[in-house]
């Protein structure tokens, strides 16, 4: 039987397969060469970069909790200048498709970063407006749809044609609204979810397990929440949705595609097994060979429309009773 076609069309970019390495869990892209060459993936998104290098948080920076991982790396990164001269060119030279994840401490940082990336050879920009670790300004930018909208709009203008993907936080009061604002502000796609604000307490020391106290939860425990948010967001927009959150197997990835995603990102799974992204690509191919479907068949299926809330509302008034 012929190899199934795993390519997925994001409109602004066609990926050779739907599996993308998530930011912060694939280093700067070349560290895993013995296990997972970046050019074998649909795309890679290296560690998020800011205008100047950031030192990040003191340790301990991560711990396991309830089958997941809580991290408070604090967005340590080499800064955009070093990234563009040292990290991006070798990735592009290998033929990898590269999204540049950017983060700022002020809304104005994002368009300035986008401007630097324009003309660099990057395939797209991913705006991390959702990291729960940003201290300045308290909540993440994505928490306020108006701020999110203007950050996206100005970044799109500054990116001079490089597609901009808005990476959304998991916990917002109205995901459909944030997704729709992202689309209206010019995002070529949205990606979600980022890690979920979380806390781990150490009973032995009666203190927090992480030096930063709180962090972001990722991995298997967030998968159902992420699936729901991808489902809601994809119902609200016509731009592609890139889904992530706890994807460890090909089956997990296929579930996200059925929930409305056009591609997926794999994060924590790569920390547990550096071959995870390749294993997932292989597994999607195996699944399609077994069922005889094409990836297009999967992507064209839709889940039924959900009830509006978590509960189905008050029971309808019954006729004939007082």
């Amino acid at each position: 039987m012929a190899e199934p076609d795993l390519s997925t069309d994001l409109g602004f970019l066609t990926l050779k397969n739907p599996v993308i390495a998530a930011s912060g869990t694939f280093g700067y892209g070349l560290e895993l060469l013995p296990f997972c060459p970046p050019e074998a993936l649909g795309a890679v998104i290296p560690k998020g970069v800011s205008l100047a290098p950031w030192a990040g948080n003191p340790g301990p920076r991560a711990c396991e909790a309830s089958g997941g991982l809580i991290n408070a790396i604090g967005l340590e990164n080499m800064g955009i200048e070093r990234f563009l001269t040292e990290a991006l060119p070798p990735l592009k030279a290998r033929g990898a498709t590269v999204g540049v994840n950017v983060l700022g401490s002020e809304p104005e940082d994002y368009p300035r970063l986008a401007e630097r990336i324009a003309g660099s050879g990057a395939d797209f920009i991913e705006l991390n407006i959702s990291c729960p670790n940003l201290k300045k300004g308290g909540l993440s930018f994505g928490q306020d749809p108006n701020v999110a909208g203007s950050v996206i709009r100005e970044s799109v203008a500054a990116a001079k044609g490089i597609p901009v993907v808005a990476k959304l936080p998991p916990l917002v009061s109205d995901m459909a609204n944030l997704a729709s604002i992202s689309e209206k502000s010019g995002a070529s796609a949205i990606s979600l979810v980022n890690s979920v604000p979380a806390l781990a307490v150490d009973l032995a020391t009666k203190g927090p397990k992480l030096a930063n106290v709180t962090g972001g939860l990722s991995g298997p425990p967030i998968k159902p929440l992420a699936l729901r948010q991808v489902y809601v967001a994809s119902g609200a927009v016509s731009i592609p949705v890139i889904g992530m959150g706890g994807i460890f197997t090909a089956e997990d990835a296929l579930e996200f595609l059925l929930a409305g995603a056009s591609a997926v990102q794999v994060g924590t799974a790569t920390l547990a097994d550096p071959r995870a992204p390749l294993r997932i690509i292989q597994g999607i191919g195996d699944y399609l060979r077994k069922t005889g479907e094409s990836l297009r068949d999967i992507l064209s299926q839709r889940l039924p429309k959900a009830n509006s809330g978590l509960c189905s509302g008050p029971p309808p008034a019954t006729k004939g009773t007082k």
Binding site: G27, E31, F35, I73
Partner: peptide, 17 residues
Amino acid sequence: EAFMACGLGICLSCSIP
């Protein structure tokens, strides 16, 4: 010693000054 999520240099959970 530091908590190591990946052991492979990709996550920065073990980064120290």
